[in-house]
Computed example of a mutant assay.
Amino acid sequence: MAVSASSSAQQARQALAERLADLCRDAGLTGLDLAERCGWSRSKSSRIMNARTPPSADDIRAWCQACGAEDQTEDLIASLRTAEGMWVNWRRMERAGLKQAQEARLPLYQRTRRFRSYSSWLVPGMIQAQPYTTAALQAIQRRRGLVDDVADAVAARMERQRVLYAGVRRFAFLVEESVLRAGIGGAEVMSGQLGHLISIASLPNVSLGVVPMRPDRERWPAEGFWIYDMAQVNIELVSGYLTITQPSEVAMYAETFAELAALAVYGAAARALITSALDALE
């Protein structure tokens, strides 16, 4: 499991390590005793208990058996999977193609009622027009050398966009003005995307804010992120996909969103910036 800079991921690793260490102590075993029962080096037991090395599912099974706590095996493996899922590198996430990566997020979208999205580099997927999505996913597929299932992945993302129109959900999107002016796919694709944003902004359950480019900002741009209710935050980084569930960290992103939202313009002022970007394309 990759080590993430997020304390959410690290705390999940640490909590699992502490539970395993407690099992060892409750069984009256030392780290050396456990290593001998499992056929490991003593250093391996120590690294696992101190969260320096993550255990595998087989390690957990052996650990529980050595401690006479087989009834806790599945719960501990579930905790391992949760910790692993907080940080997923792109190669692992997209190993079966882009379509599966798109479909995997659908349950999260279906159960969320309040969405907040901030983007400093690309139009958020939920409000992308189909040609823009195609251009973006084609670029990812070529850059990462993935299997070419772009058409299926685009269809999956378009299907996911149905949550915009189904059920009682609220969406707040913030984009930097630079997103309107530095796009992907060429002038025709960007023109269609900007027109799509104007249409999306008219939906009653959607708020679309544009953070204007200006030289005197007190809150600089941040990495793009999604907030799902107050349950989790997802961040797309260069190396992988980060999920944050620690309440204090989710609150930090909610606060950041509020600060950026205060800098944004909406309604007619936002449409004016979008129209200006359209005029620049022409």
Rank of each mutant, 00 (worst) to 15 (best):
S6F: 01
S8R: 00
R13H: 12
E18D: 13
L23M: 07
G31N: 11
L32A: 13
D33V: 06
R42Q: 08
S43T: 12
A57N: 07
D58K: 13
R61Y: 07
Q65P: 02
E74R: 14
L76N: 06
T82F: 11
E84R: 15
W87I: 11
W87Y: 14
M93W: 01
E94H: 08
A101Q: 09
Q102D: 03
R105N: 02
P107F: 12
Q110P: 05
R113G: 09
S119V: 03
S120M: 07
S120E: 07
W121F: 06
L122S: 08
V123I: 14
G125E: 14
P131W: 02
T133Y: 01
T133H: 05
A135M: 06
I140C: 04
V154I: 10
A155R: 13
M158Y: 06
R162V: 02
Y165I: 00
A172S: 14
L174D: 08
V175G: 03
E177L: 02
A182V: 10
A187W: 02
A187T: 09
M190F: 07
M190Q: 10
H196P: 00
P204T: 02
G209R: 06
G209K: 03
V210D: 00
V211A: 01
R214Y: 03
E218L: 14
W220I: 09
W220H: 14
W220Q: 13
I227W: 00
I227A: 08
M230W: 00
A231I: 10
Q232L: 15
Q232V: 08
V238I: 12
S239P: 00
T243N: 07
P247W: 12
S248P: 01
E259Y: 09
V265D: 13
A272D: 15
E282D: 11
